[in-house]
């Protein structure tokens, strides 16, 4: 199928899915206003955006890696976790008296770089030999995720680490419509949004981005054009892991660091990517916001009326099932 026809095909379902997503978000906001006071609503919306951004950070790499490499990287969650731990290690390695912001910046950079390097290593050593056997690739990444998690558990213990301190400016709460919300969580939202924009720009405006998008459509063709697709694969994989690691360290001052944090987010990340459509980055962006808001709303409803948070996890499971039934390839996915 030519690029032209694929684009034409996409636009009709694209538009209807876009409409659906917008309508759904509007519906969620309406439900919120109907049930809760403005303060609670703002907390829910911000919390939803915060959760959505975390999901995005874990799943961004997931969807590009799947779109280009056809690899379902079940170790993605553990890169998120590793980012947090690498950051912690770097944070604590500075001598007494180093200003917090310096430690913080160093931790973020180290985590991102470390995640990327580890990802590159993983791809070239372990994933590359298995491109012909996708089932085994999935099993391998699953095993790798377990190995990472268990190694960290063995070295640092299962209990987890106390959250590190972010720079003072971010370590506050601010009032909004009668409730209070942590500034740091807004910082996470901002970081997520910046990354969303950055990756979108990368994909749409740069040469590398075009190659990646072309490769997602037809990797053999790209190879035939003489481009070293293997190096691109490694780069993309590393990028995905780096973004996840960045997410981990960014969330660390709020979440702390514990071995199973990767697994907790993995399922949600998978749902986000599948919901959005596995080879669509735009789909992941929209779906992460959708899922985050849904979860936050469901959590609030659940706590208020049922006294347990059970609806929170159920809601995103159900919405994924419903979407898959109506759109078997996800909201913005491509039918091959």
């Amino acid at each position: 199928m030519s690029l032209q026809t694929a684009t034409v095909l996409r636009s009709n379902t694209f538009r209807s899915s876009l409409l659906f997503s917008a309508a759904f978000i509007a519906l969620l906001v309406l439900v919120n206003f109907a049930l809760f006071n403005p303060g609670q609503v703002s907390v829910v919306v911000l919390s939803g955006l915060y959760q959505g951004m975390l999901f995005f950070l874990v799943s961004a790499g997931f969807s590009i890696v799947f779109g280009l490499l056809d690899v379902l990287n079940l170790a993605q969650g553990s890169f998120f976790m590793l980012g947090a731990y690498i950051g912690f290690a770097v944070y604590g390695s500075f001598p007494e008296g180093t200003p917090v912001w310096a430690r913080f910046m160093a931790a973020i950079m180290a985590a991102t770089l470390g995640g990327g390097l580890l990802g590159a290593l993983t791809e070239s050593a372990l994933i590359r030999p298995l491109y012909a056997r996708p089932v085994f690739q999935i099993v391998l990444t699953f095993g790798l995720g377990i190995v990472f998690t268990e190694l960290v558990r063995a070295i640092y213990g299962p209990a987890g680490l106390i959250p590190i301190q972010p720079p003072a400016a971010l370590d506050t709460t601010f009032p909004i419509l009668g409730a209070r919300f942590e500034t740091y969580r807004v910082f996470i939202i901002v970081v997520g949004a910046v990354l969303m924009a950055a990756i979108l720009l990368l994909l749409q405006r740069t040469r590398i981005g075009i190659i990646i998008r072309a490769g997602v459509q037809d990797s053999e063709m790209v190879q035939a054009l003489g481009i070293n697709i293997r190096r691109i694969f490694t780069l993309v994989f590393a990028l995905g892991c780096a973004v996840a690691a960045l997410g981990g360290i960014t969330a660390a001052p709020y979440l702390g660091a514990f071995p199973s944090m990767g697994d907790q987010f993995l399922l949600s990340a998978v749902i986000v990517v599948v919901l959005g459509g596995m080879s669509s980055f735009e789909g992941t962006v929209i779906a992460s916001i959708l899922v985050g808001l849904t979860r936050a709303t469901a959590e609030q409803i659940s706590l208020q009326y049922l006294q347990t948070p059970v609806l929170a996890s159920l809601s995103i499971l159900l919405i994924m099932i419903v979407v898959l039934l109506v759109r078997p390839s996800g909201l913005f996915g491509r039918e091959n």
Binding site: L126, P129, F136, V139, G143, L144, I146, E150
Partner: peptide, 19 residues
């Protein structure tokens, strides 16, 4: 205690060496 770790390693070894 480290059984899960061993399982993970077995996963990887099987996939690469003994599919």
């Amino acid at each position: 205690e480290r059984w899960f770790l061993i399982l993970g390693v077995i996963f990887i070894v099987i996939v690469i060496a003994f599919p």
